[in-house]
Nucleic acid binder design. Structure first.
Lengths: 340, 340
DNA sequence: GCCTGGCACTCCGCAAAGGTGAGTGCCAGT
DNA sequence: ACTGGCACTCACCTTTGCGGAGTGCCAGGC
């Protein structure tokens, strides 16, 4: 069915269409690529490719355009991932190196990704779930008010003010603080929540009610991980290069970009930090975005996927370059996070 | 020069143009408004208004369109600010009431503003400068690494990791922590920074170098108020209603929206929390945005302007409605912040 | 003196018409 | 199995023509 030359033709069509944005015909194709055959032969191959649904004609006498299925084949079999040049790597490093904290890393990543791919970039904040407890602090604000602070290994800080049902002596607070820290230090958040719950049993009956309030606030801080719902978007100005069909491609995308929930669904879930996922056209889980593709990857320190980042762009995009960029940024951001 | 009828004509032109998006002619104007005169008379008035630069003709034999100067006059003299209806007020309240912290208030405000005005909304985060110190925490991470955490009354958390030039004993850290808190608790940030600097003198010579590093990190956290450079943008999907001239009006705006510095400049500075500023077309401090207007207002608890919020939209916008919305949201957000 | 109805004029916007060219499918020949 | 040739199709561009909305100006009326 699909011999090597037909695949070469498909590849050529995708590449030309991506760079020129115009349907590509048999003649121009032969001129620009060294296929070693005449336009007429290419036409036969094209007819076969169209038969199989890899390419399509906008109108009877126009050139061919890749279909989603065509892009899919191109991405899966016709492209070897380009690795970045040394200067490119260096640029990424230096761009991310200046980051002062996790927020800054995320912000820089979005910019970097948007700039490299010239697409709309999306970066999800690192999940707390896999981070560990660095410190738990209890601050007495008044006899019946306590500030509970949780600091994680990724440098994120969660804090809650709790109203105590009855006063707690400083001694009890100090004891509780010490016990909390020994129990949770270095533990992952879910495990830490578990440990904290266990502590409840060991408390003397007199303080039980007050302590229970504190502990439940802390457990909530451990579990209520709002950060994994947060995403940052950048490079929206690149939408300008999207095409001119505002209502049918740009508007729905702008609307989607406002909804973080939608974005998270777009990025999808990845457990493997090194795998780059590509969703093309109709594969994207929103009907309105059928003219867009999503290239995403998990990222995190030591190949563990804490969160996802990626880009959204027209199906007509430079997949090899974009995939390489997303993969590289994911890798470097993971590394940058490990340093924090 | 400008008698009452001419002003009425100008007002009618602005209103019609805003709602229809089309140049308005003398005949339609008379039909839609009760001016009590004939089209011919209106034409004469229009000629005078054009002479004075309040309106312009896209081409000979087209209707008239307001100029920036025309909008200016309209905003300054021809419009009385509409006050909101009770249901509208109630909607705002209930929308903002559910907010759990400052971040949430800001996020809700952006949504609210974008929804009410159907424009792109911008909200600057409240400045820290006027907030007070709730707690300072020092966490020992390793003998030579210390985590400095600052928690403010608005619930904002700043944190820094400092590398110590030499180890610090736990005792010294505990002592320092206690002294820091007694010195700064309840102080406003600038004053707190001052107090911290003063502490440096009282330290024993052996620890001076290490302590100095910690203190300067803290002073920096007090002063380096990055939050007043932070802004949140929402409602970009409303750009779709902007017009179809993508390259000349939407693209530069999208680019501007990416640059927080630019946005802050757009919002401008307000000291008075109750004043709504309107900048029209060329009055906006960016040449590329000459087709846009900015409606902004300061906001904060008790009429004190902690920050600015506003909207950006085409010069052709519903000024009375927008101004009313911005003013109302600013007022309610100020109130919501006071509650936190 | 200001307003009005009438009139000639301008010019945008739309639609129809015609020409051009890129691209195709098919077929006969090598 | 590939190629050159040929007739055909159809989007796109330009040209042309026309209608209509709008204007400016002028002479007449309250």
């Amino acid at each position: 069915m699909l011999d090597d030359r037909k695949l070469a033709v498909l590849r050529a069509i995708v590449e030309d269409y991506v760079s020129t944005r115009e349907p590509v015909g048999s003649k121009t194709l032969v001129e620009r690529h060294t296929l070693g055959v005449s336009p007429a032969t290419v036409r036969n191959d094209m007819a076969a490719l169209e038969e199989d649904g890899f390419i399509a004609q906008p109108h009877t006498s126009a050139g061919r355009v890749p279909t989603d299925k065509g892009y899919r084949l191109f991405v899966d079999r016709l492209t070897s991932v380009r690795s970045l040049t040394t200067p490119e790597r260096r640029a990424i490093s230096s761009f991310l190196d200046g980051a002062v904290d996790v927020d800054d890393v995320v912000q820089r990543s979005v910019r970097l990704l948007a700039q490299m791919t010239r697409q709309v970039a999306i970066v999800q904040y690192p999940t707390l779930t896999r981070s560990t407890v660095r410190h738990v602090e209890l601050v007495v604000m008044s006899p019946t008010r306590l500030l509970v602070v949780l600091i994680t290994s990724t440098g994120r800080v969660e804090q809650r003010v709790v109203e105590l049902p009855e006063p707690m002596s400083d001694l009890v607070v100090a004891d509780l603080r010490a016990r909390l820290n020994t129990a949770t230090l270095g533990e992952r958040l879910p495990e830490a929540a578990q440990r904290v719950s266990e502590l409840a049993v060991t408390v003397s009956p007199t303080d039980r009610r007050a302590v229970a309030v504190v502990l439940s606030a802390l457990v909530e801080a451990f579990s209520d991980d709002r950060s994994d719902e947060r995403v940052l978007v950048g490079g929206t100005a690149n939408l300008a290069r999207f095409g001119d069909d505002f209502d049918h491609s740009i508007r729905p995308l702008l609307e989607a970009l406002e909804e973080h929930v939608v974005l998270l669904k777009l990025l999808g879930e990845t457990n493997d930090a090194s795998a780059v996922t590509v969703r093309i056209g109709a594969e994207v889980p929103y009907e309105e975005l059928s003219a867009t593709s999503v290239v995403a990857s998990g990222y995190g320190p030591e190949g563990e996927a804490l969160a996802t980042l990626g880009i959204v762009g027209p199906t007509r995009m430079d997949y090899p370059g974009t995939i390489a960029a997303v993969r590289a940024v994911a890798r470097y951001v993971g590394r940058a996070l490990a340093d924090e």
